[in-house]
Nucleic acid binder design. Structure first.
Lengths: 197, 197
DNA sequence: TCACGCATGTAAATTGTTACATGATTGG
DNA sequence: CCAATCATGTAACAATTTACATGCGTGA
């Protein structure tokens, strides 16, 4: 159900076509919530059927149409309700850590590969999220710019602060993953030197 | 597909009935990988059909039978292959952080509730994982005890070290979540005092 | 005119969740 | 004998992934 609220969230900043929505899920929002276009088009239609969004047709070139989706009052209400509802925390599921618990089942080179890949992956994430934070704080981010226009200036600080805060949390999580992988590489080195010594 | 490998992983320590397997996913392994019994029974049968495990019937009381599943050589091989294969990192999905990015859509009390719940949830996780680590390091953990019996003593340190390492990573991630929630509560207080001032 | 981006989907398969369902065994 | 635990499932639904599929518009 979260896809629905992710869509509502971005439509609160500006109305979008299905294509644009899907692009957001590859770009900015996609760094917090991913969804493929094959999921987005049908979801938008379902949401329209439930009057959470309203699709308005627009000309696109001489012979074509495209549909731009606007969040409705009902959609905003549903979003607000969700925002005020406690989250259900899903039971934990973490392949990388599960696999690490059984590293004795593979050789040291493979362990090293896993840990290096882990560190690399989360370093890349840190890069992406950091650049998001920069764009947010400088108000360069296109979605942020669109969003701020809809609010009085005294609200801007709060809006930006929450978004920075969210991404900052993700960055620190990713940093914890990188640190963990590095501690694992150290552990591996220790175990290997013991074997040799 | 990870459920399959999680099952293989615990069957490398000891053969189990479907019921026992499901219990493991509520208890020890469940702290790293969760699955309901409705998923486990059919998966075990599929795995038996693919000769990754072998089910042997056992008497259970005077009139009943139960099936105990043993990992096969083929199953071990599949597990080893998976252990040596690089993970695919799934695109990020994080409801709590996504929601936090839109906190301006709800009132301060609700924000506080979310953040307190978040901190509480991860503090509970830390408790659980910490007690796992203790049981692992003291070799008190029943699965660990069973597992160590199958290996020569010089392997024990390595096996225990990897498991501690895995749980330690989870604990630090959870701590990062708690810290994040607390920074959020501080941010909220700052924003509220600004409004008041 | 051709490549690239914009636009919109369908279909099949997999995976996971929730709820329902049943009955035997064991220990107090 | 009764409650808790052991044992094993089915059914319906929801969510997600992967692959396939099509065609117009715009700018170089």
């Amino acid at each position: 159900m979260s896809l629905r609220y992710a869509i509502l969230a971005i439509l609160t900043a500006a109305p979008l076509t299905g294509y644009e929505t899907a692009k957001r899920f590859e770009g900015s929002v996609g760094h917090v919530w991913h969804a493929p276009d094959s999921q987005i088009y049908p979801e938008l239609r379902r949401m329209e059927a439930e009057s959470l969004v309203e699709g308005r047709e627009e000309r696109w070139g001489p012979n074509s149409l495209k549909t731009r989706y606007y969040i409705t009052a009902e959609g905003e209400e549903a979003f607000r309700t969700w925002m005020a509802t406690p989250l259900k925390y899903a039971p934990w599921r973490d392949v990388a850590h599960m696999q690490a618990a059984y590293f004795e089942w593979t050789d040291p080179d493979s362990v090293r590969m896993h840990l290096q890949q882990h560190a690399q992956h989360y370093q890349d994430q840190i890069q992406q999220w950091s650049s998001q934070v920069q764009d947010i704080e400088s108000h360069e981010h296109p979605m942020i710019a669109a969003r701020l226009q809809r609010y009085p200036a005294e609200q801007h600080e709060r809006i930006v602060a929450y978004k920075s805060f969210a991404y900052d949390g993700l960055i620190r999580l990713a940093q914890a993953e990188v640190d963990w992988a590095n501690r694992g590489l150290q552990l591996l080195a220790d175990l290997e030197s013991e074997d040799a010594g």
